[in-house]
Amino acid sequence: MYGTGILKGMGVTIRHLVDSFVDDMRFLGQRYYSDSSMNIRQGTEGRGVFTVQYPDEKLPVPEQFRFIPFLLYENNEDGSTTDRCTSCGICAKVCPPQCIWIERSSDPDTGRPIPEPTNFYIDIDICMNCGYCAEYCPFDAIKMDHDYELASYDRTEAHIFDKARLDKPVEYYASIRPNDYLAEETARAEELAKKAAKKEAAAARKAAAAAKKAAAEDN
């Protein structure tokens, strides 16, 4: 029969409309601007309107979310900072569109490379946010940021990020990617413990050998 199609279509729309009001009642005024209702509204259970009221509330990005990379530095106790990056160049090699430029300098006396980059550039007009640099960096020195609000009026200068612009403290990283951070720290601690254990074992072996030797000499 003609007209049923239209009625059905309207029916769907009306159901969604009613759902929204039902939902409004369910949340009792807590529908917007609260994290827990956001999760429900945006999850599989969500019904009715599911608009995010950006910029007043923001859809939280998951931990794995990747945008532009940033560099990590550690805050030392004496107030100085140490770059994690050793300018090994792996990220520059793996970057698919080749948008990372790293300046490594060498010690003027010895000529050996200094394990800290003099400068580090990423052209964010080329970067494809692929995350390879973070994935393959052996020192966990470069990570993918969550900050996507980067719109600007000019790109000539602002869009080649240099080291000063890329540098962020490790604490920031721990705050945006807590699970990754934890996993990496545990892995590092284990690694250290293993190394220490190895050292100890080696020392013990040495001592044992020395004792043996001494014992042999005694005889």
Binding site: V52, Y54, P55, K58, L59, V61, F67, I68, I124, D125, C127, M128, N129, Y148, E149, L150, A151, S152, Y153, D154, R155, H159
Partner: peptide, 16 residues
């Protein structure tokens, strides 16, 4: 007038 970086910029980045 305005540049929005990202590849692709998420909808929220575009709104920004």
């Amino acid at each position: 007038d305005v540049y929005v970086p990202g590849c692709p910029p998420t909808p929220q980045a575009l709104l920004h």
